[in-house]
């Protein structure tokens, strides 16, 4: 299996506090990897370091075999890395269609276009409407995001990232605050569209992680304390003590 993401010895300190210590694991191409761990384990911090929003103090990160250390977030996106945020991060004043079209245009290389922009814009709008339709939100295309429900916003958020056709998509608790039906719908959309996309998925809902992931990485206090197939992780004594035990699993 070739790795799309390789983390080696990644460390991040906030003052004297080590939020990440010697984090090392791989995500394979087209693989779905779950990242679990109690609150404050460093999952979001790791996402910020991988995507370039935070600079790590140690370690190296490779995407598709190439070092991305020191690159700005936008450069990493251009190499096929996309993410969502723990709280849905959308453009509240813009319609659902325009939210997604913003991603489509950038992916098509038309994001900064002025001349000849009308054609690029209408092509992007068409793709955006199609994506919304696939997700069962066609009727909401012209609704501003601030008027949509939490669940709908989460779905639009995920669609924006999918519109970038990333090689690796990092999802930070995409199902938090969603009903069971909404979670299933969102994961269904991701699965349908991610044939070529590897997923690194943070979720607190153990059923979702064990049900949908090929492999699971467990973090605690900034460190990786275990990884393996869902079955292996379930049996791991340290993982049970640190995490699963505390949730009664």
């Amino acid at each position: 299996m070739t790795a799309i993401l390789e983390l080696r010895g990644v460390g991040k300190r906030f003052g004297a506090f080590s939020a990440l210590r010697d984090v090392a694991f791989d995500v394979g191409e087209r693989e779905t990897v779950g990242l679990i761990g109690p609150n404050g384990a460093g999952k979001t911090t790791l996402f910020n370091v991988i995507t370039g929003f935070l600079r790590p103090d140690e370690g190296s990160i490779r995407l598709a075999g190439q070092s991305i250390d020191g690159m700005a977030p936008a450069q990493r996106v251009a190499r096929g890395l996309a993410r969502t945020f723990q709280t849905a991060m959308v453009f509240p004043g813009l319609t659902a269609r325009e939210n997604i079209a913003m991603a489509v245009r950038q992916h098509a290389g038309d994001g900064l276009r002025w001349f000849g922009g009308a054609r690029a814009a209408s092509a992007a709008a068409e793709i955006a409407v199609r994506l919304l339709g696939d997700a069962g939100l066609a009727h909401r295309a012209e609704t501003p995001l601030r008027d949509m429900s939490h669940g709908e916003r989460r779905i639009v958020d995920a669609l924006m990232s999918l519109a970038l056709s990333p090689r690796l998509l990092l999802l930070d608790e995409p199902t938090a605050g969603l009903t069971r039906a909404e979670s299933d719908r969102l994961l269904g959309i991701l699965r349908r569209n991610h044939a070529d996309t590897a997923l690194l998925l943070v979720a607190h809902d153990i059923d979702i992680v064990f049900g949908h992931c090929d492999r699971v990485v467990v973090m605690e206090l900034g460190r990786v304390i275990g990884s393996g197939t869902p079955a292996e992780v379930r049996e791991d004594a340290e993982v049970r003590r640190a995490y699963l035990g505390s949730t009664g699993g």
Binding site: A82, F91, G93, Q106, L112
Partner: peptide, 26 residues
């Protein structure tokens, strides 16, 4: 200008700059 993709991107940077960076915009 404001109707073109560049103008919409400008609105995006006003609405949610972090999201714009995560979409690959500079």
């Amino acid at each position: 200008f404001v109707a073109a993709p560049i103008g919409r991107a400008l609105v995006g940077t006003r609405e949610e700059p972090i999201r714009m960076a995560a979409l690959g915009y500079s």
